[in-house]
Design a protein around this nucleic acid. Sequence first.
DNA 1: TAGATTGTTAATCGATTAACAATC
DNA 2: TAGATTGTTAATCGATTAACAATC
Lengths: 234, 234
Amino acid sequence: MPLSQTPKSHVSARGVIPDATVSRLPMYHRSLVTLAARGVILVSSEELAEASGVSSAKLRKDLSFLGSYGTRGVGYDVEFLLYQIARALGLTQEWPVVIVGIGNLGHALAGYPGFASRGFSVVGLFDTDKQRVGESVVVAGKALEVQDISKLPQVVLSTGAAIGVIATPESAAQEVCDLMVRNGVTSILNFAPVLIEVPAGVDVRRVDLATELQILAFHEQRKSQVALTQANAG
Amino acid sequence: MPLSQTPKSHVSARGVIPDATVSRLPMYHRSLVTLAARGVILVSSEELAEASGVSSAKLRKDLSFLGSYGTRGVGYDVEFLLYQIARALGLTQEWPVVIVGIGNLGHALAGYPGFASRGFSVVGLFDTDKQRVGESVVVAGKALEVQDISKLPQVVLSTGAAIGVIATPESAAQEVCDLMVRNGVTSILNFAPVLIEVPAGVDVRRVDLATELQILAFHEQRKSQVALTQANAG
DNA sequence: TAGATTGTTAATCGATTAACAATC
DNA sequence: TAGATTGTTAATCGATTAACAATC
């Protein structure tokens, strides 16, 4: 599970949206995009829940925090619900994003099609490595040149980027974070395997690729132990 | 069967470990590795909690599910606690892992140092792209050649890999998953932005790089709204 | 109207927290 | 002993679930 350093819950048109609900909205959004692409017009809570891997009761409860966007006896209009969820998530506006650390992970993030399609626009790629600075990376169909980290302040200022992504090694993460924050970045997605310190008002979410693997190992270990127990019992 | 061969407890020494606790164990593990590297011998729940970004009450509660590994009035022995957490997570054994989809993300995963240091050993890299098959990738200091996906069954069989990582585009994810499961993989880490279907007994965890960014955008949007409201009120 | 499905309620379940007895 | 800190308890808080009244 991703590690959150963000506040607990949030105010919407209807009041507070629980954290647990917010964390599932991107999944519902994705399911609806898929359904819309297939030409589906209407969807029931049962069908959308199935497509998203949750129970229909949970789905309806989650959607009720956004508003009453369904029709009793009928279901939800796919396009309309899609728009409402996108709006709640903030995906109906354009978010300029800067990425620091253009190694393999940085390249993967810069080229990820799921960013552009959700309103995220990568406006700057930065590295300290002279070998990488100047390299041209294709982002959302356009070439973007990797710049020296010293150019970050100017790019953040001119684009108004509020979101920064850290894909550096652990050793550089805090320094990069400080630079971002000093220049007005107020939301940081941190892929470096270290907790970073930020002033109040700045949100950080950390994704550690190894964390999820460790949780899988935990469950896998449990499965082997159960198998062993059954073998010994039998 | 002799009593000496009877397995001890199975889920844990103390019983069931809650999901919320399991999700935080990798973080505690990482904090302890850092402390140990600094030569710290003893740590209090207060200090370890601070380093891990949780409250000390939560930390002590979490650790209590593993056993009683601290000393009242003193704290926790860093090396001993590190071992106990590693053991609980299953990191004291070697986990052979196969990775399918060796694009930018696959490369980043294959080269991630946090894998090898936690007992994960990448034993196979697979792709369908003829351009990529045959490429040599440095994994944990050794060269490993990208193989055609058709070689996966043989590698899973010979290495006993129970864990597979999917880093393919969405379109290939389910097919790759099926191939893995048919050949004995029982835990799957899925980076493709799609839900995959697996039989009972197979665990899947999905990491979507865009999900976290969307949650950040949600919070960022909230911040601007609050700022706006305050400006209008003032 | 009859059938279907939402949105909400209330009960249950699980996680978090503060406080402190146990004990080094 | 006096001080420190764990491990556990009990209260609180938040999330999930099943059931169903509302209503299309």
